[in-house]
């Protein structure tokens, strides 16, 4: 819940701030956004499994972001769109983590439904 509020505050602040990213820098920012989204989903999955560690979360976020930005920069120098590699890697992980979250959510829903049915059965009998 608090994460959603934080996201909304961030978006509002971004709209309000009178700062613009130049078109030369927007590929790096795009990669950085993906790194951030990847970390968010990874962190969700880890906290759901009760194995969230702050050190891993922070280092993962920063190292991934730096690596992705570095790839984008080198790609620009040698004329190959290397930032695509970062986008594909982050995208794949995003979908994997999302799949895990979806399954966990479904399992919880099923458990909840089964429990309420049992309760109803107990009450009716």
């Amino acid at each position: 819940m608090i994460q959603v509020i934080a996201l909304l505050i961030g978006i509002a602040a971004g709209i309000w701030l009178p700062y613009n990213i130049s078109s030369a820098n927007s590929p790096y920012v795009a990669v950085a956004i993906l790194a951030g989204l990847d970390s968010i989903f990874g962190g969700f999955v880890a906290s759901m499994n009760h194995r969230f560690k702050l050190k891993i979360f922070v280092t993962g976020l920063f190292c991934n972001a730096v690596l992705a930005a570095g790839l984008a920069y080198i790609g620009k120098l040698i004329g190959v769109d290397l930032f695509l590699a970062a986008i594909v890697a982050f995208g794949t992980r995003l979908f994997q983590n999302f799949a895990i979250l979806r399954r966990m959510g479904l399992e919880k829903l099923e458990e909840f439904v089964a429990k309420t049915r049992k309760k109803e059965d107990v009450e009716t009998t």
Binding site: L7, G10, I11, A13, G14, G36
Partner: peptide, 21 residues
């Protein structure tokens, strides 16, 4: 919790950057 707080901070930053972008 630590997890929620950390994720929330990153959410804030990501939201900011997305809207700017």
């Amino acid at each position: 919790t630590v997890a929620r707080g950390a994720i929330a901070i990153i959410c804030l930053i990501v939201g900011l950057v997305i809207s700017l972008q």
